[in-house]
């Protein structure tokens, strides 16, 4: 009998290996993010961004790029019987939730490693905001990962997969967007990073992550029942 941790790591390793070999999600996400920056450059007709506008462009772009990965998250499981295999294995089914959320978290982190420096290069005066952005983005990634995994499971089992996931997920992520944008706004001000209520917003993000991680842990079992 495998321990839950081993099973979770095995599933996560499988997902990351598949992604490395097929490169189905990550390049598409990065390309989408960069294209979206270009669209914002012309849509807003601005070559420099700061403050709230910069935070909004960054958060919206990362969120929509994340949707690409969320839509694809369970496709292999659904098409090739991975759900059945997890159901048959003598492990807690919640390991699939933990493994998929971790995989999504890794995808988002890699996406940001590429997209955020490009964002700074395109729009920001200096890279001074990049370091303090790290904790904000990590906490935001965690929240997107847990809610994204939960809603992606629901959407994958439905007949309207690509439609349903963004439809439910976007309103569900609004508190996270509010907290991320408000934490990032003072960091991206023209005069250099400021830390207005930085701790408060990190706490809101942490609370969001905690609540939905617990909800996901509690209800995920019922999504796999058949």
């Amino acid at each position: 009998m495998t321990s839950s941790r081993d099973a979770c790591l095995a599933l996560l390793g499988k997902d990351l290996r598949v992604e490395l070999r097929t490169l189905r999600s990550l390049p598409a996400m990065a390309l989408f993010a960069v294209t979206t920056f270009v669209i914002f450059r012309f849509g807003l007709d601005r070559t420099e961004l700061e403050g709230g506008l910069a935070a909004g462009v960054l958060v919206a772009t990362l969120l929509f790029a994340a949707m690409l990965a969320i839509n694809r998250l369970f496709v292999a499981e659904h098409e090739q019987g991975g759900f059945e295999l997890v159901r048959l294995s003598p492990v807690d089914r919640t390991v699939l939730f933990a493994a998929k959320a971790s995989a999504l978290f890794v995808y988002l982190a890699v996406l940001e490693l590429v997209a955020v420096p490009i964002f700074a290069l395109f729009f920001l005066e200096s890279g001074a905001a990049l370091a303090p952005l790290v904790p904000v983005l990590l906490l935001a990634n965690l929240g997107i990962a847990v809610t994204g995994t939960l809603i992606s499971t629901i959407a994958t089992m439905s007949s309207a997969r690509d439609l349903l996931a963004p439809l439910i997920l976007l309103p569900l992520l609004i508190p996270l967007v509010i907290a991320t944008a408000n934490a990032a706004e003072p960091l991206l001000r023209a005069g250099g990073p400021e830390y207005d209520r930085f701790g408060t917003w990190l706490a809101v993000l942490g609370l969001y992550d905690l609540v939905f991680a617990l909800v996901g842990y509690a209800v995920f079992d019922f999504l796999l029942e058949d």
Partner: peptide, 14 residues
């Protein structure tokens, strides 16, 4: 259940 947990969080953030 998920949406029920969302309601108070959303009020807090907004």
């Amino acid at each position: 259940i998920t949406a029920g947990a969302f309601v108070p969080l959303n009020f807090l953030a907004v």
